[in-house]
Amino acid sequence: MAKKTTSKKTSAELDMMAMVVESIPYAYALFDDKDRLVQFNSTYLKNSALGRKFLSSQPTFEQIIRQMIKRGQIEQAPENAENWVKWHIAQHLKTTAPFEIFIRTGQVLRCSEKHLDNGYISSRYEDITEQKNQDRTVDESEAHLEAARNRLTEAIDGMSEVLVMYDAEDRLVLCNANFRKVHKDFPELSKPGTTISHTIRTLVKGGYFGKLAHPKTFAKERIAMAKKTGVREVELPGGKHDRAITTKTRDGGMVIVWSDISQFKKISNDLAR
């Protein structure tokens, strides 16, 4: 009678264990100390696509992997899969960081192994397909953005004019090669984040605008002028003349484009005489 009661208790415990395993929200498998499959849930059954009869026969981990490769279930396994099989078994038999498996259905599974005190191995396979697709989308978006940024850089560097863009806080966002060339003696002015106020004060202090009687007043006026939209002409030392065009961006920043009109001014003055 006691034996029968114990048998019923054991059966109930096994049923309870099966229910718990089945409720796990990812593919789960348990391998014994001889590396034979002794427990699995329906998600593992579905992902392996090997059938309940085969999995219920307690195949070893190696037999499962080889059978999946034979049926073309694992995408990243090469034609000569022996080295890959050995690597995968090694990951399974020792505690390692999680690794990924790509299966034929297009799913990506993250495999994590846990070695138990009794020599058993608990394996979990989480479906991270959606996450990988999102990562791929982000990577593709970043690649497109980088390509667009490179095209923009090539375009503005190919301009004959000087171009510089500032954000709504008057900090430099980008500038072209001519801006860097004109200000080659002040390389720090080409660094993103440099304010237009700092740029003009640095140029005044460095003598870019020539010798000034009231440099602070000049800098203040020039900063205010630079922030105004429209077209203006600037006379520089040595008879050089620039024409600057300032336009506002939709986010409150501004783009300044200026060109050397010294030759044009010379011709105009000659004709006026």
Score class of each variant (00 low, 15 high):
173 V>I: 13
107 Q>R: 14
10 T>V: 03
255 V>G: 01
156 I>H: 00
218 F>P: 06
160 S>V: 02
37 L>G: 03
113 E>M: 15
12 A>N: 06
212 L>M: 09
102 F>A: 13
73 Q>I: 15
10 T>P: 02
100 E>T: 08
182 V>K: 01
213 A>Q: 02
189 L>D: 03
168 A>E: 15
208 Y>W: 00
194 T>H: 09
181 K>Q: 11
54 F>I: 13
109 L>K: 04
65 I>N: 05
37 L>F: 06
152 L>V: 14
119 G>I: 08
41 N>W: 11
102 F>W: 11
204 V>A: 01
94 K>E: 10
205 K>P: 00
177 A>F: 04
262 S>K: 00
120 Y>D: 07
19 M>W: 05
130 E>R: 03
233 E>R: 15
198 H>L: 07
36 R>T: 05
259 S>W: 00
12 A>F: 04
91 Q>L: 08
194 T>Y: 10
268 S>N: 14
63 Q>V: 08
142 E>C: 12
22 E>W: 09
202 T>G: 02
67 Q>M: 13
230 G>S: 11
99 F>E: 08
17 M>Q: 05
44 Y>N: 11
141 S>A: 15
227 K>E: 12
107 Q>N: 10
250 R>D: 08
59 P>K: 13
168 A>I: 09
38 V>C: 08
83 N>P: 13
44 Y>W: 15
138 V>I: 15
105 T>L: 09
50 L>F: 13
72 G>D: 10
245 I>M: 09
28 Y>I: 09
216 K>H: 12
140 E>T: 12
144 H>M: 10
16 M>W: 08
38 V>W: 01
23 S>M: 14
262 S>H: 03
88 H>T: 15
43 T>N: 14
6 T>I: 06
259 S>A: 07
226 A>I: 08
185 D>I: 02
233 E>V: 07
89 I>K: 03
269 N>H: 13
100 E>I: 09
11 S>Y: 06
258 W>Y: 13
59 P>S: 10
73 Q>D: 10
187 P>M: 02
246 T>R: 03
2 A>Q: 03
262 S>V: 01
51 G>W: 10
88 H>S: 14
217 T>H: 12
87 W>T: 12
87 W>Q: 14
31 F>S: 05
142 E>K: 15
184 K>I: 05
148 A>Q: 13
97 A>G: 13
118 N>V: 04
129 T>N: 02
46 K>C: 10
15 D>Y: 08
1 M>T: 11
